[in-house]
Structure formats: structure tokens, C-alpha cells
């Protein structure tokens, strides 16, 4: 590793610019391309006293723009979630999609759609995110409970991945069943849950995901130093004044909330949380303060680009975004797995 400390700030600045560029591309191109004039007109129409937006501009304001913004926050939450999980387990091949968090969250929200339709539950805006969180907590906890060794109570990474595989399959089949019996159009689309898509984005989902992502990331940032200490081992972290059990619970909770809420509105998007911290570590080292900020920015950028590809590849039709992220993520995941020093 070369000298990193001074260049991290500059690197984050570059990432922030990249995020803005990705956002600009993401709002401009898609099934329809909006001209810059259209975009400015649409945006100025929001200011009182300006002319009403045309139909085209209305599509931009109600569909394209919320989708692009949601994409940023979902990408950020997946990136930060990946960083937190990898730090927690001191292993670079863990990510929310692999240890069950995402599929559990997807199951929780699918269940909400199905039961909500049947039972006519009086739902507030937060009912869906809460259902997703419960699902995420249950599945994540289930994976760790089952992966724990009977002898020393520790979860080996092989057990973790295998158990995650099984629990993911379980929840995915449950989602399949729910989709089969569902009436709600959103829940009926199994593709939505299993491969992820941002096509359902609206301003309501943007507002919820932006709150959990921002609050969660800022909270996580406060624990960056303690997470660094954890990287030299649990005993050593304790000697450095960290209450390790408390830290684990806090980080796991933050992770479940930000990932589950994002998943509730987009379905399972895998491998973003895996790739993002990995790239950042290769570029500028493993300091968690840098990784948390960086993974929010890089996650947002990469998911925006992935969504752009998903929209443009078969234009005017659209690919589920999970196909794009998996196509890029799987090779990286496999190459990480083959590096033996990472597996313990």
C-alpha cells in the first residue's frame, strides 16, 4: 500500500463528483431520453408561478427523478451495509444478500403486501419498512444461530455462507408462494423480489429510504473507530476500550435497518455490498471511516450505472437490476473466494 492518508479526502471528493455525474446520466437517459431543456423546465415548474409541466415533464418528475434518487440511496445503503457486515465478521466475502438479510427483508415486505390486502391492515407509511426490518432481523438471526459452531460458539465463514444459501432458498421459496397467491400487483411479481428493480420508485419510497440510509450511515460513522479496533481482534478491541458485544449489536442493527428498508422498495439486489468495500480497500486501504463514506458514494454511483444499463440494454424494455449487479459481482466474489488467505 502506498501513502494513503492524505489522498483519501481527495479520493472521496472524486467519488462525490462521480456520483453526481452518474445521477445526471441516470435522470437523462432511459426508455425516453430527456433533453436538458426538458429537465430544467420540469424542475423550474416546481417553483410557484412557473408554467405547468407538460406530460413529458410530468413523467420526468413522477417517474424518472424519484427513480434516480432512490437508486442513489439504495446503492448507498447496500454499500454501507456491505462495509459494516465485512467489518463485523472481519471477512471480505460477507454481504447482506449472502447472509439472509435481503431475502428475509423481501419476505417481510411481500408478506405485508399479501396480508395487507387480505386483512385490510390500516397501514402507515412506516408499516412496510417495519415489516421488512422484522423479516431482515429474523433471517439474519436465523443464519447466525444455525451457522454457530456447537463447540466454541463461533460462526465459521464456510458455515455462514452455506447456512445463508439455505436460508436464502427458504425465504425465496416462501416469497414464491406469496407471489403465487398474491393479489397485489407488486407482490405478484416474483421477479421484483428475487432480482430487484427500481421501477416501482416514487417520492414516498425515496423519502423513507433516504431517512434510514442517512441516519444509519451517520450513526455507523460514529462507530468507525471502534470498528477499526475490532479489525485487530475481539480481545484486542476490548483492551482498547471497546465494548465488543454492544458494538456488534449496534452495527448489526444499523445494517439490518438500512438494508431491509431499501430491500422493501426494490427487492433483493445482490453483490453491490460485496464489491463496493472491496474496490475501496484496494484503492485506499481499510480505515472504516473512509470505507463508510466511500461505500455510500461508490454504492450510489455503481447502482446508478447498473440501473442505467438495466434501462438501456434492451430499450425500451427493462432488465431487472439484480441481473446486472450479479453479472458484475459474481466474478469478483469468485475471485475473492479463491484467495485462500481470506477464508478462515
Amino acid at each position: 500500500m502506498t501513502k494513503q492518508r492524505g489522498t483519501r479526502r481527495g479520493f472521496l471528493l472524486i467519488l462525490a463528483v462521480a456520483t453526481l455525474i452518474a445521477l445526471a446520466a441516470s435522470i437523462r437517459f432511459g426508455a425516453i431520453d430527456f433533453s436538458i431543456a426538458d429537465i430544467t423546465h420540469a424542475l423550474t415548474s416546481l417553483i410557484p408561478g412557473h408554467p405547468e409541466p407538460t406530460l413529458n415533464q410530468r413523467i420526468f418528475l413522477e417517474l424518472r427523478l424519484p427513480r434516480a434518487v432512490l437508486c442513489l440511496f439504495v446503492g448507498a445503503s447496500l454499500g454501507v451495509g456491505g462495509t459494516l457486515m465485512q467489518a463485523l465478521f472481519r471477512n471480505p466475502i460477507v454481504e447482506p444478500g449472502l447472509v439472509g438479510t435481503s431475502s428475509g427483508a423481501a419476505f417481510g415486505s411481500a408478506l405485508f403486501f399479501v396480508l395487507g390486502g387480505v386483512l385490510h391492515i390500516a397501514a402507515s407509511v412506516w408499516t412496510l419498512p417495519i415489516a421488512a426490518c422484522i423479516g431482515g432481523v429474523v433471517s439474519t438471526y436465523l443464519v447466525f444461530l444455525l451457522a454457530k459452531s456447537r463447540e466454541d460458539g463461533r460462526a465459521s465463514i464456510v458455515m455462514l455462507l452455506l447456512t445463508g444459501l439455505a436460508v436464502n432458498a427458504l425465504f425465496m421459496s416462501a416469497i414464491g408462494f406469496l407471489s403465487y397467491i398474491a393479489r397485489d400487483p407488486q407482490a405478484r411479481s416474483i421477479t421484483f423480489w428475487s432480482l430487484g428493480t427500481l421501477s416501482g420508485a416514487n417520492w414516498k419510497s425515496v423519502s423513507i429510504v433516504s431517512i434510514t440510509t442517512t441516519v444509519g450511515s451517520i450513526l455507523a460513522l460514529r462507530y468507525a473507530k471502534q470498528l477499526n479496533a475490532l479489525m485487530i481482534g475481539e480481545e484486542e478491541a476490548t483492551y482498547l476500550g471497546v465494548n465488543v458485544n454492544r458494538l456488534k449489536w449496534i452495527i448489526l442493527s444499523i445494517n439490518v435497518v438500512i438494508v431491509a428498508v431499501a430491500t422493501a422498495f426494490t427487492g433483493v439486489i445482490s453483490f453491490v455490498g460485496l464489491i463496493v468495500p472491496h474496490i475501496l480497500r484496494m484503492m485506499r486501504g481499510a480505515d472504516n471511516r473512509f470505507l463508510i463514506v466511500g461505500s455510500a458514494l461508490l454504492g450510489a454511483t455503481l447502482l446508478s450505472l447498473a440501473d442505467l444499463i438495466a434501462r438501456l440494454a434492451l430499450r425500451p424494455a427493462e432488465l431487472p437490476i439484480g441481473i446486472v449487479t450479479s453479472a458484475v459481482g459474481v466474478p469478483i466474489f469468485l475471485s475473492l473466494l479463491r484467495r485462500r488467505q481470506y477464508v478462515f
Binding site: M1, K225, N228, G233, E236, Y239
Partner: peptide, 29 residues
């Protein structure tokens, strides 16, 4: 942690931290 420190037999660092970053951890408390 501000007045008690322990030097263990061997310390494995999980990710690519620089030597200076590891030494700085001693100042965390």
C-alpha cells in the same frame, strides 16, 4: 483502556491497515 494495555502473543489484522494506522489504534482510547 486509558491505563491498562495488553501485548498478546500474535495479532492478526483482518484488512489491509498500514503499520502507522495499527500503532495509532493504541491512541484510540
Amino acid at each position: 483502556a486509558r491505563r491498562r494495555a495488553v501485548l498478546s502473543q500474535a495479532v492478526e489484522v483482518a484488512f489491509p491497515f498500514t503499520v502507522r494506522e495499527v500503532v495509532m489504534m493504541g491512541r484510540y482510547p
